[in-house]
Write a protein that binds this DNA or RNA. Structure first.
Length: 492
RNA sequence: CGGGGUGUAGCGUAGCCCGGUUAUCGCGCCACGUUUGGGACGUGGAGGCCGCAGGUUCGAAUCCUGCCACCCCGACCA
C-alpha cells in the first residue's frame, strides 16, 4: 500500500476511490458492479440505519419485509414505473442448473427449467408491495399503512462506483397508503423533513430540500421531493427522495377502500428511500487528503487511545490510565477503543486512524504519565493539545459535540458560498466551468428548456427549493418569464 | 451500451514495440535482533497458471482471436 492518498486537487475521483478502499470501507467484488462492504464501512452504515430506523419508528412507521423477486406481470402493471426501470433490470428466467454434457466439470442452465413467468429482481418494490397492500385494505379503518423495509435492490447500471452507484445496493424504502390526498402529501413532506434532519444533524451534511422537475421525477410519481447535498468538487448529490405517488399505484393494482361516506375510492400513496449512497455523500462532504473524516455521530469508534511506551512497565502503567479513561468515557456514552497492538508503532497507528476518520485521538506516553496529562488530536482540525487528566471525560464529551458542529458549519459555509445567482447564460456557463456548485437561476418551467440546458452544459435542475421566494425574472436560456429561481448543478 | 486506456506476487510497477537463461524493482508479508512522542532500521526468508480461454511457434508475459474485469470520457441512473 502506498503511503499517501492521491490528493483531491490532483484527481478527485481517484482520491475518492482510493479513500474508500484504503480506509477499509468497501472494495469491488468478483461480481460486475457489485461491492463488498467491509466491516468498517458496514459499521458506519449500521450507525445510519440505527438512527434512521429510530426516526421512522418515532414517526409511526413499522418495518416489514417483501420478496426480492417481482413477477413480470406485476412489475409491468404501473406503466410509467415499469418503463422507467425496464432498461436496468436483472431477470430470473430459470430455476435449475445441471451438469454440462459437453463440458466436464461445468454446469449449465437446464433448458427444461425455464420459468413460466420471468421474475424481476426488484429495482424498487412498489409493484410487489402494492399488489400485497391490495389484500390488506378494504376500509378507511385499515388506513394508513406506514411500512418501511430495509432491503437490497438491483439496478443494472452501466457505470458503477463504490457506494455512489453500484448494481446492487442497500437501502430502506418506505411505502405508505393513505385515505386522502392531503394525508399522503403530509407524509411525503414529513419524510423529506426526516431525511433533511438526519442529513444535517446526524451526518453533518447540509442539504437543500426541494421538489424535482417533471423530468427528474421518480417513474410513477406525481411529485418527488428530495434532499440535495453539495460535494467538495462542486457536484451535487441527490441524497434522498420522498415521492408523492397520488393514486397511480392504487389504480394500477386496484387498491380501493370504502371511505367514511360508504363510497369506494382509490388509496393515496407515498414511497421514499435513502441508500448506501449516503456513504458516498459522507465521504465527499467531510474527508480530506489524509483520508476519511467522520462526524462523531457516525464514527464506529469516536475516540481511539494510542499508547506510546518504551517498555512493558510503561505499557502497563499506560494501560491502567487508559482503562480509567475508557470507563469514564463509556459512562458518558462516548465510544472508545484502546489501540494497544504491539505490532504497530505509534506513527503507523496515527496515520491509520486518520485515514479511517476517527474523530479524536488520545495519545498517552511517558511524559504524560509524569505530568498527569494526555495529548488530544482532533481529526477535523488536525490540531493537537495537551490536557490534564482531570475532567478529561467532560472535555472529550464536549469535543464530540464541537467536532460534529464544526464539520457541519464547515460544510454549510462551503455549500452556501457555492450557491451562485446568475442572470445570463454566459455567466451560467462560466460559473459551472469555474467555481461550480449550485447555480440559482430563472427557468421558464418547460422540459424543453431544461433538456436544452442539460445538453449544452451537462447541468440539470437539482430541485426547486421548497423555501423559494417568489421573484419575477427571465429564463436564463430563453428569456421567457419566470416566477422563481431553481437550483442547477452538475450531479453525481 | 459507444469511444479511449489498463490488467505481471497483497499493493504499485519494469519487461511487451523487436518471442529465447532462473520475470525486474519498491512497498507490504514472515523470522530474529535493535526500536517505539508522526507511516522504524538491519540481516535473512517466503510469495507468480504474467486477467481468463483458445490459436500461431521448436519456444509466448511478449504475436493473433475471443471473453472478463477495472479506470477515464459519453449515453443512462439513486
Amino acid at each position: 500500500m502506498s503511503k499517501n492518498l492521491t490528493s483531491r486537487s490532483e484527481d478527485y475521483s481517484k482520491w475518492y476511490n482510493e479513500l474508500v478502499v484504503k480506509a477499509d470501507m468497501a472494495e469491488n467484488s468478483a461480481v460486475r458492479g457489485c461491492m463488498v462492504i467491509k466491516p468498517y464501512g458496514y459499521a458506519i452504515w449500521e450507525k445510519m440505519q440505527a438512527e434512521l430506523d429510530r426516526m421512522f419508528k418515532e414517526t409511526g412507521h413499522q418495518n416489514a419485509y417483501f420478496p426480492l423477486f417481482v413477477p413480470k406481470s406485476l412489475f409491468e402493471a404501473e406503466e410509467k414505473n415499469a418503463e422507467g426501470f425496464a432498461k436496468e433490470c436483472a431477470i430470473v428466467t430459470h430455476y435449475r442448473l445441471q451438469n454440462d454434457p459437453d463440458n466436464e466439470g461445468k454446469l449449465r442452465v437446464d433448458p427444461e427449467a425455464k420459468l413460466e413467468e420471468e421474475l424481476i429482481v426488484r429495482p424498487t418494490s412498489e409493484a410487489i408491495i402494492w399488489n400485497t397492500y391490495k389484500g390488506w385494505i378494504q376500509s378507511y379503518r385499515d388506513l394508513p399503512i406506514l411500512v418501511n423495509q430495509w432491503a437490497n435492490v438491483v439496478r443494472w447500471e452501466m457505470r458503477t462506483r463504490l457506494f455512489l452507484r453500484t448494481a446492487e445496493f442497500l437501502w430502506q424504502e418506505g411505502h405508505t397508503a393513505h385515505a386522502t390526498k392531503e394525508e399522503a402529501w403530509k407524509e411525503t413532506k414529513l419524510i423529506n423533513n426526516v431525511y433533511a434532519n438526519f442529513a444535517e444533524n446526524f451526518m453533518a451534511i447540509p442539504v437543500v430540500q426541494g421538489l424535482k422537475t417533471e423530468s427528474e421525477r421518480f417513474a410513477g410519481a406525481e411529485e418527488t421531493m428530495c434532499i440535495e447535498a453539495l460535494m467538495q468538487d462542486g457536484k451535487a448529490l441527490q441524497a434522498g427522495t420522498s415521492h408523492f405517488l397520488g393514486q397511480n399505484f392504487a389504480k394500477a393494482f386496484d387498491v380501493k377502500f370504502t371511505n367514511k361516506e360508504g363510497k369506494q375510492d382509490h388509496v393515496w400513496a407515498t414511497s421514499w428511500g435513502v441508500s448506501t449512497r449516503l456513504m458516498g455523500a459522507l465521504i465527499m462532504t467531510h474527508s480530506d487528503d489524509k483520508g476519511l473524516v467522520l462526524p462523531p455521530n457516525l464514527a464506529p469508534n469516536q475516540v481511539v487511545i494510542v499508547p506510546i511506551y518504551r517498555n512493558d512497565e510503561q505499557l502497563e502503567e499506560i494501560t491502567n490510565v487508559a482503562n480509567n479513561i475508557m470507563s469514564d468515557l463509556r459512562a458518558k456514552g462516548v465510544s472508545v477503543k484502546f489501540d494497544n497492538r504491539t505490532t504497530h508503532r505509534p506513527g503507523a497507528k496515527f496515520a491509520q486512524h486518520e485515514l479511517q476518520g476517527v474523530p479524536l485521538r488520545i495519545a498517552i506516553g511517558p511524559k504524560d504519565l509524569e505530568n498527569g496529562t494526555v495529548e488530544l488530536a482532533r481529526r477535523d482540525t488536525l490540531t493537537k493539545e495537551i490536557v490534564s487528566l482531570d475532567n478529561l471525560a467532560d472535555i472529550v464529551k464536549n469535543l464530540m459535540t464541537e467536532i460534529q458542529d464544526t464539520l457541519f458549519n464547515k460544510a454549510l459555509s462551503f455549500r452556501d458560498s457555492h450557491i451562485t445567482e446568475v442572470d445570463t447564460f454566459d455567466e451560467f456557463k462560466d460559473v459551472l466551468e469555474g467555481k461550480a456548485g449550485f447555480i440559482s437561476a430563472h427557468w421558464d418551467g418547460s422540459s424543453e428548456t431544461e433538456n436544452k440546458i442539460k445538453e449544452l452544459t451537462k447541468a440539470t435542475i437539482r430541485c426547486i427549493p421548497i423555501d423559494n421566494k417568489a421573484e419575477e425574472g427571465k429564463c436564463v436560456l430563453t428569456g421567457n418569464p419566470s416566477k422563481q429561481r431553481v437550483l442547477f448543478a452538475k450531479a453525481y
